[in-house]
């Protein structure tokens, strides 16, 4: 399996406080990689370095390299806008725009000028909603407000919105942490489904979730990558004592 993203010697700082220490990690194409670890261990920060979302924080600074398809995204002159189109993101709290369901999905298509015509736009919106397993639930009310959807539906709408711009990688920051078990199950099924076409990186607090959806798991603690390996191995026979302690619930 080819590597989609390679991170090497990545250090990350908020002002003077170091949040990530010397992280080196390869994320293979079209697999699901889960990041686990206790709160504040830097897994979300790390996820956000992969589409340079941390750029919005003025005091944040990264050094080291993150290459996606062989290109260092921290090289000077990198087009962050193009990067984010290629590396989509789904957030912990669903964050639909104050627009209709249709317009939420259409937004990314429009701003990136992906569609060739009005009917192409409609088609793309429909496809994205299908892919996010939401179409059947919203097809009769595309023009009503996105805020009228349930929490789980809103989150799938956000996934649809991310899919609509045809990314290659999807970053998910605890996408199901605010959802009930049934909605969570739908999101998990979706992640497994999406793996066929996308490289997925998912941050989760839920150990079972990591074991159910991911091919590989990375365990972080205090800004350091403790262990990274195939999920089954991480959960059955981890190399590190810390990993075992965390997974078996001795702390965290």
């Amino acid at each position: 399996m080819q590597n989609k993203i390679s991170i090497s010697n990545l250090n990350f700082f908020y002002g003077k406080a170091q949040a990530l220490y010397d992280i080196t990690l390869d994320i293979p194409e079209k697999e699901v990689v889960a990041f686990i670890g206790p709160s504040g261990c830097g897994k979300s920060t790390f996820l956000r370095t992969l589409n340079r979302m941390n750029d919005t924080i003025p005091i944040a600074r990264a050094d080291g390299t993150v290459t996606i398809d062989g290109e260092n995204i921290y090289a000077p002159g990198t087009d962050v806008v193009a990067l984010r189109r290629k590396v989509g993101m789904v957030f912990q709290k669903s964050n639909p725009f104050p627009k209709s369901i249709f317009e939420n999905v259409a937004y990314g298509i429009r701003i990136n000028g992906i569609h060739s015509s009005k009917s192409d736009l409609n088609h793309r919106v429909e496809k994205a909603l299908h892919d996010a397993a939401l179409w059947d639930e919203v097809k009769d009310r595309l023009s009503s407000s996105a805020f009228g959807l349930s929490g789980g539906q809103q989150q799938r709408l956000c996934i649809a919105r991310a899919l609509a711009v045809e990314p290659e990688v999807i970053l998910m920051d605890e996408p199901a942490s605010a959802l009930d078990p049934i909605a969570t199950q739908k999101i998990e099924e979706l992640v497994v489904e999406l793996k066929r076409d996308y490289t997925i990186v998912i941050v989760t607090h839920n150990m079972q979730q990591a074991s159910r959806v991911s091919d590989k798991t990375a365990f972080f603690m205090l800004g350091k990558l403790i262990e990274f390996g195939p999920t089954y191995k991480m959960f059955q026979n981890p190399d590190e004592k810390l990993t075992e302690d965390y997974i078996t619930g001795r702390f965290g």
Partner: peptide
């Protein structure tokens, strides 16, 4: 909410477009 800005930025929207057609209407 900042999450709304991030949502738009994450789709590859340039900052001014986020201000113009997400933040202002909101």
């Amino acid at each position: 909410p900042n999450s709304m800005r991030e949502g738009a930025l994450a789709l590859g929207a340039p900052h001014w477009r986020v201000s113009w057609n997400i933040v202002l209407p909101a």
